[in-house]
């Protein structure tokens, strides 16, 4: 496995297709999807509804089996969910009966890390997301944005090979979402994590990604792969710049055609 490391990308999705079968009909949700994420890369997948983007992420996470094709992490084929692929969902998935700190330490506890180390690690990642002051509180006392930051800390504390994010800011209000985007860029640069994020928000995808995939709908397949030629240092003013708007127009046009298929 190690000898392949230089030839294999960090995460490789190879010819993944997914067919959903019900009694009456078959639906092809994903059609031979090929994509990859390199180490320390932040990649976004942007797609309209019907592009199967959530299905794709669930397959990568190992929560769903592909009908054909395979997913590889560092050359090792994915056969089920595991701690090497952390996942952050759109809806708040913190465990309501655990304190914020216990939530962040959850994965470490499952790994059998001792209590002292667990505490230290959890505190460290809470500091990273700027929430060390709420460590002892229960999640329901926190705002939506804070809860998602805890969810990110919980995923990071496990030190996954790759962090998968499924519309992580979709449930937040527009202002909080913009802050979270800057926050995620910052975290990503500080912790040197590989991130694969899916979203339907084109602006969000361009703002966050170093590289992005645009998915076609019905069936979901890769329609375009775009290198985002924007500086690494990004803040909200970037969204007003000409290069940004130009790129956005391109993607908007692509997705508009895809969305019309379902309209």
């Amino acid at each position: 496995m190690i000898q392949y490391a230089d030839r294999w990308p960090h995460l490789a999705v190879r010819q993944v297709s997914k067919t959903f079968r019900s009694r009456r009909r078959e639906v092809l949700a994903l059609d031979a999807v090929d994509l990859h994420v390199d180490a320390n890369e932040l990649v976004c997948i942007v797609g309209a509804s019907g592009s199967g983007k959530s299905t794709l992420l669930r397959i990568i996470a190992g929560l769903l089996n592909a009908s054909s094709g395979a997913v590889y992490v560092d050359g090792l084929q994915v056969s089920g969910p595991g701690a090497d692929r952390g996942l952050v969902f759109q809806d708040y998935t913190l465990y309501p009966w655990l304190t914020v700190e216990q939530n962040v330490a959850f994965g470490l506890k499952m790994k059998g890390v001792d209590r002292q180390t667990r505490r230290e690690q959890a505190q460290h990642y809470l500091r990273v997301v700027g929430l060390e002051h709420v460590a002892g509180q229960l999640p329901h006392t926190l705002s939506g944005g804070m809860q998602q930051r805890v969810a990110i800390a919980r995923a990071l504390a496990n030190q996954p090979a790759i962090l998968l994010m499924d519309e992580p800011f979709g449930a937040l209000d527009a202002q909080t979402r913009a802050l979270m985007q800057e926050f995620l860029r910052k975290i990503w640069r500080e912790t040197a994590t590989s991130i694969l994020l899916i979203t339907h928000d084109i602006e969000e995808a361009i703002f966050l990604a170093g590289r992005l995939y645009v998915l076609a709908s019905n069936p979901g397949r890769v329609r375009a792969e775009i290198d985002v030629p924007l500086p690494a240092e990004r803040d909200f003013t970037l969204k007003r710049r000409t290069e940004f708007l130009h790129l956005k127009d391109q993607v908007v046009e692509m997705l508009r055609a895809e969305t019309l298929k379902n309209f």
Partner: peptide, 25 residues
């Protein structure tokens, strides 16, 4: 369902999902 899925991606085994997620939830 998402509480269970998150537990899996945090490296939780099935028996422990039963004990640490489903039971308290």
């Amino acid at each position: 369902r998402s509480l269970i899925d998150v537990a899996y991606t945090l490296g939780t085994s099935r028996p422990r999902v039963l004990r640490e997620v489903i039971w308290p939830a």
